[in-house]
Amino acid sequence: MSEILSAFSIAFDLIVSLDRELIEIIRRTFLVSLSAVAIATLIGLPAGAVLAVVRFPGRRALVILINALMGLPPVVVGLVIYLVLSRSGPLGFMGLMFSPTAMIVAQCVLIVPIVTALSHQVLRELYEEYREQLCSFGATLPQMILTILWDGRRNLVTSVMAGFGRAVAEVGAVLIVGGNIAGVTRVMTTTIALETSKGDLALALALGMILVVTAIALNASAFLVGDAAPARQGG
């Protein structure tokens, strides 16, 4: 109980004193996770739209597969990425092991299925609604995809933020491929794990609180941007 109380005061002190190390870690955390989300968005949204619009053999199986991959265990992803990026692995020559880039790759693998599956869900319903109209205009496939992506953008924010949530909260994979190196690959979750290991539960909890608050702030600003966008056709 005393830990929970002192966690609040430690969190407060850390924020008020603008602890340099902490700010570095927070920035690195968001740098890594936002990069992963940006890449996953560039892959996941178009992929989700294609799955929603284009009919091709094996489409259902692919949707089921991607849905299943949303539950990929991070440790397994971390281990596989490690074996691939290790100096003894197929991409070892790139020297990416224990770098922020390796962490971005791991997070990407984890969240591309999430962004794809959730945006497919959103866009499929939108496409049902739009299909006749789009066909009567004689829209081409790329036009259809662009239209539903644009009109679905407000709901797609949720898909992207779900991916971000998974990325920023993840610890198993980034611990393996990042190595939790102080000043290089140490992010919020790995710091929290480390402080828990040291038995400094109050500091660990304080860092946890700060992580949650910053994630809420980022989500809030994403939705504010989404809401500020002019709604078109009730989209």
């Binding site: 600003s221 994403a222 504010l224 941007v225 500020a228 966008a229 002019p230």
Partner: peptide, 11 residues
């Protein structure tokens, strides 16, 4: 919209 988006981009 533009302000909010630009603010986010700036951050």
């Amino acid at each position: 919209m533009y302000f909010a988006r630009r603010a986010l981009l700036a951050v």
